[in-house]
């Protein structure tokens, strides 16, 4: 149970960073933290006590594996997260190019 709680704590730390921080890079870090929390939670869903990693090295391996599907899904989610983070950082760098600041309070050319 304590590991699930740690996921939630990690999630909340990330949310805190997104909501309160004014630096764009810190917001991006908040996102990465939330993403890790979700991925960690997902990987833990497939966990079984005392089970092995789901890798078949011999054909007659006993089938006491942890659930491999969450691991495969987390891998996909990580790849998507990589793309999102890269895009977000690229946008942030371009914003810095235009506004010469990382502070969201000073980036408000839009009226809305």
């Amino acid at each position: 149970m304590i590991v699930f709680a740690s996921c939630i704590i990690l999630f909340l730390i990330g949310l805190y960073a997104i909501v309160t921080k004014r630096n764009l890079i810190k917001i991006a870090i908040g996102f990465v933290l939330i993403e890790y929390a979700v991925n960690l939670f997902f990987a833990l869903v497939g966990f079984k006590k005392g089970a092995l990693a789901p890798i078949i090295t011999k054909l007659d391996t006993p089938h006491n594996f942890v659930d491999p599907i969450p691991q495969a899904l987390v891998l996909t989610a990580i790849v998507i997260g990589l793309a999102t983070t890269a895009l977000m950082l690229t946008v942030i760098l371009r914003i810095y190019d235009r506004y010469k600041t990382f502070d969201i309070a000073e980036i408000k050319r839009l009226k809305g």
Binding site: A86, T90, L93, D97
Partner: peptide
């Protein structure tokens, strides 16, 4: 390409 976009962005913008 991502690395280049982030690290060498001035040149390939």
């Amino acid at each position: 390409a991502i690395f280049l976009a982030l690290a060498a962005q001035k040149y390939i913008i």
